[in-house]
Amino acid sequence: MDYDVIIIGAGSMGMAAGFSGHGFKFSSAVGQVLSDLIISGKNEIDISRFSIKRFINES
């Protein structure tokens, strides 16, 4: 388990979750990432560390 947020963009839907009380300071950056994902399906920022796939145990 880690303390990073989860950011998902799929088709015309995006979601960001896991922010605690200090998460508001990331809102503009996360909003930009989500809007890029929703509009074009990609973005210029590597957000792989925020994927929900990191919780999948591949043992």
Rank of each mutant, 00 (worst) to 15 (best):
S59W: 13
V5H: 03
G23A: 05
F50N: 00
K25Q: 13
F24R: 12
S27T: 14
M13C: 13
S28W: 14
N57Q: 12
A10D: 12
K53M: 08
A29C: 08
S28Q: 14
S20Y: 07
I6V: 14
N43A: 01
A16C: 13
D36E: 11
Y3Q: 10
H22C: 10
A17K: 07
Q32S: 15
E44K: 14
M1A: 15
L34Q: 05
I38V: 15
I47S: 01
I56M: 11
M13I: 14
D2L: 06
Q32V: 12
E44R: 13
D46M: 04
D36R: 00
A10C: 10
N57T: 13
M1Q: 13
I6N: 02
D2C: 08
F26A: 10
F19Q: 08
D46R: 01
S35C: 14
S48W: 03
K53R: 09
Q32I: 13
S40E: 14
S12I: 02
I8P: 00
D4K: 08
G11W: 03
A17G: 09
N43W: 00
H22L: 12
D36S: 05
A29V: 08
Y3C: 08
G9H: 01
G23Q: 05
I8M: 07
M13N: 10
G41R: 01
D46G: 05
F24A: 14
R54H: 05
V30E: 02
D2R: 12
S40L: 09
M1P: 12
I39V: 15
S28F: 12
G11F: 02
K25C: 04
F26E: 07
S40Q: 12
E58L: 15
D36H: 03
I45T: 15
I7S: 00
G31C: 04
A29G: 12
Y3W: 08
N43M: 06
I39W: 07
Y3V: 07
G18N: 02
S48E: 08
S48A: 13
I52A: 10
V30Y: 03
I56L: 12
I7R: 01
H22S: 14
K53L: 09
E44I: 10
K25R: 11
K25A: 12
S12T: 09
K42F: 04
D46C: 02
K42Q: 11
F19L: 11
G18D: 01
Q32F: 10
I38N: 04
F55S: 08
S28Y: 12
F19W: 09
M13Y: 11
S27E: 11
E44V: 11
K25V: 10
E58A: 12
S28N: 14
E58H: 15
I39G: 06
G14F: 00
M1R: 15
L34C: 06
N43I: 05
F55Q: 06
S20L: 06
I7T: 03
M15A: 15
F55T: 05
A10Y: 11
D46A: 05
M15P: 06
H22F: 12
M13W: 08
G31Y: 07
V30R: 02
I47A: 00
S51Q: 01
M15K: 04
N57S: 13
S20M: 07
K25W: 07
I7M: 04
R54N: 04
V5A: 05
G23I: 05
A16H: 00
I39Y: 11
V5Q: 04
L34T: 04
K25D: 06
G18V: 03
D46P: 01
S27H: 15
H22P: 13
D2I: 01
G21V: 10
S20T: 06
F24V: 15
G14V: 02
